[in-house]
Amino acid sequence: MASEAHAESLALREQFDTAEQQKDASTLGMWIFLITEIMFFGGMFLAYTVYRSKYPYVFAVASSSLNVYIGAANTVVLLCSSLTMVLAVRAAALGKRSGIVLFLVLTLLLGGVFLGVKAYEWNEKFQEHHIPGPSFSFEGLAPDQQGYAQLFFSLYFAMTGLHALHMVVGVGILSTLIYQTRKGKFSAEYMTPVDISGLYWHFVDIIWIYLFPLLYLIDRHLGK
């Protein structure tokens, strides 16, 4: 029982007994949010799985038109950003302010590179007429199979688009954190926002870890 009142600070709000309890509550809250995100993306992964199992050949052919090397390189970029993010959280836990700023800026830059590459890939799809719609055409597929290829690209754009939207939100979060760190808001005692944002960034990374093999790597040996 915490009967005695404690002085309120960022690290210890009035309603918590200890700073550790407050930290655990924040972490748990963030994970619950991330679970709603898992269910959100889960619906799309489900739709993907249903249609891929229905039209495996068309999905394999359409998937093989994506540039696997760009996709793999972008995966590496995102993994690098996860490393710099975790190093920023580590610097925050140790109270090294300059380290936080350095690693957050690196994470921000790598996130920007990822989005830039994604924009390049999407632009390529426009030029190839692989955008679902009236002008859609996929060479090498019979007319009655064009619709299934459109289905693949609809899922491709919905899933990578939603993922990219999360990246854009992440870029906003990182910018805010960099500003707040420079203002001196965080210390070894209070770095919850950095920690929690780290969880978000890694979650977005995990989504891509599944998107990459599922969208880019379907039966590549058929495409050759």
Binding site: S82, L83, M85, V86, G198, H202, D205, I209, P213
Partner: peptide, 15 residues
């Protein structure tokens, strides 16, 4: 399987 291995590495260590 590989993706799940990567997911576990990220979740257990980075998260």
């Amino acid at each position: 399987t590989i993706a799940t291995g990567k997911m576990l590495l990220v979740a257990l260590f980075f998260m």
